[in-house]
Design a binder for these strands. Structure first.
Length: 275
DNA sequence: ATCCAGGCAGATG
DNA sequence: CATCTGCATGGA
């Protein structure tokens, strides 16, 4: 692993880092492919990434933010070895997805984004989020920031319907009003179990969406979102419900379960059944 | 046209 | 507690 930080630039290379796999595995919705890499927005931060061979160059005003966001200082090689040690049956999936990083995203952005994700497809999820940002977020020269809670509360339910949110408009409207600063501070300080219960009190947030928020927005590795892809990959005679799948892998992998889940998801979507 | 997409809420056995 | 149904929208 090599990392060089300049004023507005991070030059990075690691065997266990692949920006494309990291962005395209369903954990993040605010990115666009460019000719030479990707443009990424997180909260009110922007980053342009250029990929050249194994080296990725990030150009941004806030290098510290994106070093943390992409977990560039973390030793994923060791994490991956630990997963394989605890769950050898996942070896192939880990190797195939070893470039994926769990992004450290903003909790509010994750709550709203994954409410929208329910019974939806990724291109449309991206579109709805993008239009919400355009309608309510701060304008910058690179585009629109994700709205603050206050800005979200400025959108009426019919505004949200007009932005294409469909029946989720009511959930977003309600959720924006639920997640006040008191809620958010409880959420970030609670243990994973209690945080899950808090999230389930938000309209439009069920177990799967809550797991995604915990994993992608609150850095909780001891979660295991089970969606339709995971069902395809893991349902069996013994693990015949989503809850059993979830408990089995969290029990086996602890706070590495969430990362393993990303590898399985990636493998199921991109590798299994192809080539 | 019909089905599906990183499920959820509400109602019913 | 487990299972069933309706759901906005747009692309395949």
């Amino acid at each position: 692993m090599t990392i060089k930080t300049e004023k507005n630039k991070i030059i990075y290379e690691d065997d266990c880092f692949d920006l494309s796999d990291t962005l395209e595995c369903g954990q993040v919705f605010r990115y666009e492919k460019t000719a030479s890499g990707y443009d990424i927005i997180s909260g009110n931060k922007f980053c342009r990434a250029e990929i050249c061979g194994r080296t990725t160059t990030f150009i941004t005003d806030d290098t510290d933010y994106f070093i943390h966001y992409f977990a560039l200082s973390e030793d994923y090689k060791t994490l991956n070895e630990k997963i394989i040690e605890s769950a050898p049956e996942l070896t192939e999936a880990v190797i195939a997805g070893r470039g994926i990083r769990l992004l450290r995203q903003d909790p509010l952005e994750m709550i709203i984004s994954f409410i929208i994700s329910a019974n939806n497809n990724i291109p449309r999820i991206k579109g709805i989020i993008s239009r919400i940002c355009r309608a309510a977020g701060d304008k910058h020269d690179w585009g629109y920031a994700f709205p603050t809670r206050g800005q979200l509360c400025g959108l009426s339910e019919s505004d949200l319907i007009n932005l294409g949110a469909g029946y989720r408009a009511a959930y977003i409207y309600s959720a924006a009003r639920s997640v006040d600063s008191d809620f958010m501070s409880q959420l970030t300080s609670a243990d994973t179990m209690s945080a899950m219960k808090l999230l389930l009190s938000v309209k439009g947030v069920g177990k799967k969406v809550a797991d995604c928020i915990l994993l992608f927005g609150l850095g909780r590795g001891d979660t295991f979102p089970v969606d339709t892809w995971m069902e395809q990959a893991l349902l069996s005679e013994m693990l015949n419900t989503n809850a059993k799948i979830r408990d089995y892998y969290i029990g086996k992998l602890g706070n590495l379960a969430g990362l393993a889940q990303q590898y399985i998801y990636h493998y199921q979507r991109n590798i299994e059944g192809k080539s």
